[in-house]
């Protein structure tokens, strides 16, 4: 589901802003988080980007990083600076990575809107509230743990 939402948001961005991704044409970028079992391939082809969870195919670029570094990157942190600090491992072309990161940094997820297409508005809104709090926290892992704990011990107060 996450890959579909990401794919949808990325391609919406490409379409609305008429972004030319020819420099990425034919490239596959493998992207994985080191502290979460999350990995996806970004396949740039036919003027669009496919996001797949099947990562067995050959990738031109392999990017590994931790979740907190990913959040930093999404909040606009400079890729070169993170590379210099050894917070990101990249095998392959850094220029391709930079192009993809530039795109990802522009994406604004309307997570609720996308999710509601599949779950209905109420579920999407509740998940969206959690996601918003998760995103705005300084320590996202602690925040989500706190939310889950809160949800489990006092479900009726979880609004």
């Amino acid at each position: 589901m996450q890959s579909i939402i990401l794919q949808s948001a990325l391609n919406h961005l490409l379409e609305v802003h008429q972004i030319d991704i020819r420099p990425l044409e034919g490239k596959t970028v493998h992207f994985s988080l080191q502290d979460f079992p999350i990995e996806v391939n970004f396949i740039c082809t036919n003027a669009r980007i496919f996001v797949t969870t099947d990562t067995t195919t050959h990738a031109d670029v392999d990017i590994k990083l931790k979740s907190n570094v990913f959040l930093q990157l999404m909040q606009g942190e400079d890729l070169t600076e993170l590379l210099r600090q050894d917070k990101i491992i990249i095998h392959g072309d850094v220029k391709t990575t930079q192009l993809l990161v530039d795109l990802l940094q522009q994406v604004e997820f309307d997570f609720e809107e996308e999710l509601s297409k599949f779950t209905g508005d109420i579920v999407a809104h509740q998940v969206g509230r959690i996601a918003t709090k998760f995103k705005s926290s300084d320590n996202p892992l602690a925040a989500i743990k706190d939310k889950i704990t809160h949800f489990l011990i006092a479900p009726k107060r979880f609004h």
Binding site: I4, N11, E15, R48, I49, F50, K117, F118
Partner: peptide, 15 residues
């Protein structure tokens, strides 16, 4: 209807 909706969302079809 949901299965088909998911299919469309996955398609990456554009204008």
């Amino acid at each position: 209807r949901l299965w088909k909706h998911y299919t469309i969302a996955t398609s990456n079809v554009k204008a």
